[in-house]
Amino acid sequence: MTDLGALFLRAMFVENMPLTFFLGLCTFLALSRRVDAALGLGVAMTLVLGLTVPLNRVVYDLLLAPGAWGWAGYPELDLSYLSLLAFIGVIAATVQLLEILLQRFVPTIHAAFGAFLPLLTVQCAILGGSLFMVERRYDLAESAVFGLGSGAGFALAVIMLAAIRGRLAYADLPAGLRGLGAAFLLTGMLSLGFSAFAQMVTS
C-alpha cells in the first residue's frame, strides 16, 4: 500500500508529465489561458489516463508481450513492436466510448468538459503514460495508480499555470513576450519549483 502511495506521489509531483517530461505541452499551453478550461482539461486527463494505462497493460500482457501467444502454440511470437498501434487504438476507442457514455448518462459533466475529450486521442501525455508503463514494467495495480497520479499531476500543473496567466493578463509585458513567450518562462519557473519535490519520494 505504501508503495502504491509513493508511486502516486511520484507520478504526480516528482515525474510530473508536462513539467519534467515535456509531455502534452501543446494542450497544456493552449488551454491554460483560463482557469475553468484548465480545470476541465485536468479532469478529462485524469479520467482518460486512469482508464487507458491499466487497459493498455491488460492488452499488452494478453496480446503483445513476448510469449503472450504461448497458449495458442506460438511461444516464440513477440508482437511488442505493434504496441504503438494497439495503444493508439485502445486510447481512441476509450475516449470515444467515454464521450458517448457521458453524453448519455451524465450530460451536465459532458457539457462541462466533454469538449476536451476528443483532443486527448492524440495527446502525447496519454500515449506517453502507456509507453512509460511498458518501459518500467508496472503491474496492473501500479499502472492504475501511475495513470491516476500522472493525470492529477497534469491537472495540478495546468490549473496553476492558468491561474498565474490569468493574473498576468493585465500586466504590461514587452510585445514579443506576450502570450507564448511568457507562458514558456512561467512554465520554466513552475518546473523549477516542482524540481524541489525530487527528494520527496525516495525509491
Binding site: L19, L177, G181, F184, G188, M189, S191
Partner: peptide, 27 residues
C-alpha cells in the same frame, strides 16, 4: 534540468517575436 529548456525556448520565442513584430500577440 528540465526548466532550462522552457527558459531557452521562451527567450527564443521572445527574440523571434521582437524581430518580427507582426507576430507579437495582441494585448
Amino acid at each position: 534540468l528540465a526548466p532550462s529548456a522552457f527558459f531557452l525556448l521562451g527567450l527564443l520565442v521572445w527574440a523571434i517575436r521582437a524581430t518580427l513584430s507582426e507576430q507579437a500577440e495582441p494585448l
